[in-house]
Amino acid sequence: MDIKEYIESGIIESYVLGLASPEEAAELESLGKQHPEIKQAVDEFALLIQQQAMQDSIMPPAEIKQQLMDALSDEFEAPKVLIMQPGGNKEETGDTKVKQLPSFSFWRTIAAASIILFIISAAMNVYYYNNYKSASDKYEALLIEKNSLQANNNTYQTKFSNLEQSINILQDSAMRVVKMPGVPGKQDNLATVYWDTKTKDVYVLANNLQQTPAGMQYQLWAIVDGNPVDAGLIGDCDGVCKMKNIPKAQKFAITLEKKGGSPTPNLKAMVVLGKV
């Protein structure tokens, strides 16, 4: 048989379009096994018809697909994991290039477990981050409190140190104590001068002095042979304040002067006076 003539006889078209009789179809299929060019001619025309039909596509109404999916819903199998082997000829049919993993449910379990662990992990991240934030805030607050306590502590230490010094001064056996009660009209005021008989240093303790008005300051005077000698301004010191060195004095007095002190006392503004 002339194969070329056979191929060009119209039998190929007849077969592909389903118009060949069962006998003609059987003959073509059997000849196709011996002559690959027959099979090739069938494939070529089939592809031509397919391309033509694809070009002539008419979209069916959209709801038909859903109706079909619903109608066949019981017939679908659960999706399977497929592995494509590389290098396979895509047009080759018959042999299986798609292989199913034997332990699919195992992998699905692993995948599900991974997702669950990931979600738990994410939740724990949020939880621990919140805890960290809270601890961090508390730490900041404690740090501020600690600094504040430290500052207070320093203040108290300074105060304590001053007071200790004052006590030491007061306890010194060489210290002469001069009480200065309030002058008439200001009797409720009281101050004390401590005068070191060895070093001649003078300390003053404001037992009870009225609050100075704004812009005014108390000034200590030593009365030496009837003349007032500046013995220093009473500042912000706590407890016993160290004043100027006074070698000799018969009396001590405190006057209210303008801030910065005066060279001579304003006697009208005398608050306390005491004899040595």
Binding site: Q50, M54, D56, S57, I58, K65, F76, E77, P79
Partner: peptide, 22 residues
Amino acid sequence: KERQQSAFSYLYDNYSGAIYSV
């Protein structure tokens, strides 16, 4: 042949127009 829904859906999406035309 493995009764995969995705394959049927793909088949429909790709060929229903051509088949409807026939």
